[in-house]
Design a protein around this nucleic acid. Structure first.
Lengths: 346, 346
DNA sequence: TTGTACGCGTTATCAC
DNA sequence: GTGATAACGCGTACAA
């Protein structure tokens, strides 16, 4: 496919300057190999003709794109409404930017993560919260691309960054149990398992494990009367809707645990809309500690995870793999229960 | 540069299948041109050898990358802390995602936007809030890339998306003046002009023009005693700091107008920290209407701009330029004053 | 179906 | 020390 006229190539400069393409390339990338005045002449002509190197051809030659890919399991517009994702990205960008790597945000194409991968020109991938990650892993291996998986299950030989979901969830649930709550609704994150929490993987599995460990220590378990899990879309709307469904089925809970602050805030809105006194009649605990969690009324008790640090750590690992051929390893970051006014004794 | 072994190319498949490279290419992209059983054999071998096409080589051949670039004037981590940017991106992503275009976020490299541009392999650029955009425009023209400028000055022949900054600013200031305020502090956005608002361009110029039009109708002007402008970083911290500087210089204002909600919220925090009764003693008006504006106490009066729509509109225009060779045009979206509790009569 | 030129810059090798 | 030559990377598309 021919370029339109008007786009100047290295050959044009070479011809005009009466030198070879190689000389032009050297003038830009290794001027010391050429006589000073030759370099000068070439650069002058390049300027005059408005030459700009074609990044594609360059990448093709040197075998690197200088770009990192961020692979997400949902459409970007859904990811971006969650401040959690923005903060993660900010962390990634802080590290990548230092090395001059732009970020390619790669959402599924026509619902397929695989299609998206195979058409992305990047030097490495960060994957975020993939539920079914095996096929993706294999595809990335095929392409021979380094990658770091964030919020999945640690796999031997694969670089992974996670948070201590289980203990975070355990702390949240223990907190409510200690306050005397026994009828507790869980608002989970929609998963491909469609509510079958026994089959959860990765992040969701670890959180459910943590919640259950706390429940079991109090002689309860998920699935008992008054202790039910409902999956929601990760959005305020999803939280509102989930809370309503919770009320429709079975006895009203005295406490609600959400797996995401966005969901918790939605539940809070739904509760307030019904005239429920949150903290008095109903305790509420979230997960993530997004900035909004501190703004809402009452401020939300939640489990803080270091989102920016997660992004920075993952980006650092990926750049180590890409630039320095490091060995993949695993990192787990701590979580912390942040008690605010949305939770109180029963 | 050779590929490492293990990465399979189209030539490997061709050799193994005993056909030409062209046949392999057709098997993937135009199977109807080949005998069914040939296609089958080729695909089987490709699968067996774990072949994945090289997206770089493909882009090089077809002359398209299938990627849109988003060019930002600051490091990404600074952009991403502003929910404004995330919402804009969400709008862009919604449109780009439908066409299967991933997004390349391109921050300045070593402080240079130009360097960043010339190494980005994209089919078109969206620029956001460039203050000095002429050089960037020229560089993009050089590369022969379509582009859409968001929040700059409308230029003839260049695709531009803007909001009605002037009337938005006018409405905000008129609102305060009607409430009787006459000592009004402006918290602006840091610009390369370093406080010389007479020299502002683009968005900042239009906003200052709107504020001044309102002031002049009340017999005042920027620079009068009690009507001063201070530039801030666009962050809560920047707002806190700006508010403090405002108090240090000259008479205490009865109202503060910020050019960004993030700045306004920072000012709000600083005021509350000083024990100032916001809305009673001090009125506060922002710009953007980010979600937080409605959460803070007291809720923030502000000028709403349709951030997602801005992103969608810009992305649509860019895709029209890229895919359908449309003619560049200009769009201006409306703003709207949203009165909440942070502003009251003097 | 095949052969092959093409897109465009890089780099190893060679000549002066 | 300077610079040219040509192979290379990999998939596409046209002529045959």
């Amino acid at each position: 496919m021919k370029n339109g006229p008007g786009v100047v190539t290295i050959a044009d400069i070479a011809a005009r300057a009466g030198v070879s393409k190689a000389a032009v390339s050297y003038a830009f990338n290794a001027p010391e190999r050429l006589a000073a005045k030759t370099v000068e002449r070439i650069l002058a002509i390049a300027e005059e003709l408005h030459y700009t190197p074609n990044p594609l051809a360059r990448s093709m030659s040197i075998g690197r794109t200088g770009t990192l890919g961020v692979l997400v399991p949902q459409p970007l517009e859904e990811m971006l409404i969650n401040p959690f994702f923005s903060e993660f990205l900010a962390g990634v960008a802080a590290v990548a930017g230092d090395e001059g790597f732009p970020l390619l945000l790669v959402p599924p194409v026509k619902g397929s993560v695989d299609l998206a991968i195979s058409s992305a020109a990047v030097d490495g991938f960060l994957t975020l919260g993939l539920e079914t990650f095996r096929p993706t892993m294999h595809l990335l291996e095929r392409r021979g691309l380094p990658y770091v998986m964030v919020d999945s299950d640690p796999e031997p030989g694969v670089a992974c960054v996670n948070i201590d979901d289980e203990n975070g969830a355990y702390a949240a649930m223990t907190h409510l149990l200690a306050l005397g709550h026994r009828r507790i609704g869980l608002l989970g994150i929609r998963s491909p398992q469609r509510g079958r929490w026994e089959k959860y993987n990765g992040t969701l599995h670890r959180r459910v494990t943590g919640y259950r460990r706390a429940l079991q220590e109090a002689g309860l378990d998920l699935g008992d009367t008054g202790v039910r899990l409902i999956e929601c879309e990760v959005s305020e709307e999803g939280g509102r809707h989930g809370f309503e469904r919770l009320l429709k089925r079975g006895p009203a809970p005295t406490a609600v645990v959400a797996m995401s602050d966005l969901i918790a805030i939605g539940a809070l809105e739904a509760a307030l809309a019904r005239g429920i006194d949150v903290s008095g009649e109903l305790s509420l605990v979230g997960f993530d500690d997004i900035p909004e969690a501190a703004w809402v009324q009452p401020p939300l008790t939640t489990v803080r995870q270091p989102m920016q640090e997660k992004g920075r750590t993952a980006a650092k690992m990926l750049l180590d793999l890409v630039l320095r051929a490091a060995t993949p390893h695993h990192v787990v970051l701590d979580t912390e229960l942040v008690v605010r006014a949305s939770s109180a004794s029963v």
